[in-house]
Design a protein around this nucleic acid. Structure first.
Lengths: 253, 253
DNA sequence: AATAACTATTTACACTGTACAACATTTAAA
DNA sequence: TTTAAATGTTGTACAGTGTAAATAGTTATT
């Protein structure tokens, strides 16, 4: 992938693109495609072939314009990436039914799990998460939803922000392995299990005297879930975090 | 960056490279450079110019061999990346003094903060974290150290593994913003503050009726730490996680 | 001395992002 | 109605990437 970031260009331009606040051109030929069509095409490519397959040429071809016409709509790939991230996050902005009747813990759990599934559906997002927050409409709506889940519990504004940020960060850190497993499998056809079986014989030849605890824990873990069970580790850490949140909320409430 | 992963090649070959178990060549000319020199040169480039600057040609040039000689030592960039990750992690394998006298909470805090600083020193690592665990000597030593921090507390092996994994995942998720801020600043010269001031006027023109909680929380947060304080959010989440761990350990102990 | 094994190098190709200039099309102003 | 400005589109071009393939050079074994 490309660690391009949109900071190189004009940050304001990106804002206008994100919020659809680009004034319609007064003169000149009608654009063949709209911005959101372009972004949607890029997302389709990323979903099926990964973020590396999203090149200006391929996106342009997908919507039926010439390679360089791409740049009349988007300043560069960096901006395209940010637009993709915000647009795809539209899937994670609506609360489920019964949301109102839930407690905060159920809400946060739901948010974390939805986010997990979102990252699994679009694993390129995980590889791409950019630096500065993308202050687009959907990213903001997603933030709003998370904040509303813990509103009125006695936490101050700073604590609310950090709760949401920490939770999001945790999910992103935890989903990495699972999401990448998907990408790798799609690209190479090799599952984690196959990979594990390939290297297992080698691992047995190593000297583990420098790793005493590992040599005790490793085999048990290996027996239980091979090289790792990302979803199980995710649930484990999530519960510890929420347990910790319970203590804080009790102190405040 | 390049989301190449070493799964494409022979996983066993990578293992042999990681553990220095490639038999020395019996015939032919002496290699001009060693593998670790090559990897070290790549790390230097990544530290100063980011992971995108690490190309086979530049690494080869840095150690004084022709571009394609690179492939005599390493099958592809993917393997180079994995080797870089393990080699640079050597900085995070030794316990500090007084480690023995510490409690588990102080140990885990220390591990998390060291890891944070490690990612900040080498922010390219954050952009690159690969899919499958890199079962190299330093990665394993790092795992061993973390396990030893919580050994003997009554947690079973599975819980120990998931504790270490969750903690690592959390740090990685939380450090992203801080690490990227460094990268972006290095590359573009624009700090988060400058960026924030550039877009702030635009943000004030938006309609926040769809974001009621955000419009209450946002200004307070903005006043406190602008667009975000990654380190503070990191500490916050870390404490919640450790509080949650305390509960679990009490139940087990 | 001959051969096999190995490293190093040169050349080449298919990709990438995008700068630049020429051209096409639509609309506002003269 | 004509003209000029503004914009979208396109073709060409360049520097950079990873790496396949062929070749040349070096050394230990036979």
């Amino acid at each position: 992938m490309s660690q391009e970031f949109s900071g190189k260009g004009d940050p304001l331009k990106l804002m206008h693109l994100l919020w659809g606040k680009v004034q319609a051109p007064r003169r000149g030929p009608k654009p063949k495609v709209s911005l959101s069509e372009l972004v949607a095409a890029a997302i389709v490519i990323a979903d099926s072939d990964g973020i590396d397959a999203v090149s200006t040429r391929k996106v342009a071809e997908a919507v039926g314009i010439s390679p360089m016409s791409f740049y009349t709509h988007v300043p560069s790939v960096a901006e395209l990436h940010d637009l993709m991230l915000d647009q795809v996050l539209a899937e994670c902005t609506q609360p489920p039914k019964d949301w109102q009747s839930w407690g905060w813990r159920q809400r946060l759990t739901c948010i974390a799990e939805n986010l997990w599934q979102h990252y699994m559906r679009h694993s390129w997002v995980v590889e791409m998460e950019t630096h500065r927050p993308i202050l687009g409409p959907n990213t903001l709506a997603n933030y709003e939803l998370a904040l509303s889940a813990i509103d009125g519990l006695g936490l101050d504004e700073i604590e609310m922000d950090m709760t949401v940020t920490s939770l999001h960060n945790y999910v992103l850190g935890a989903v990495r392995h699972a999401a990448r497993e998907q990408s790798v499998w799609k690209d190479t056809g090799m599952s984690d299990n196959e990979w594990w079986f390939t290297i297992a014989p080698f691992l047995e030849t190593l000297d583990y005297t420098s790793y005493p605890v590992t040599s005790r824990v490793g085999p048990v873990v290996g027996e239980a879930y091979g090289v790792g069970d990302p979803q199980r580790a995710f649930q484990f850490g999530l519960e510890r975090f929420l347990d910790g949140m319970t203590l804080l909320i009790k102190r405040r409430g």
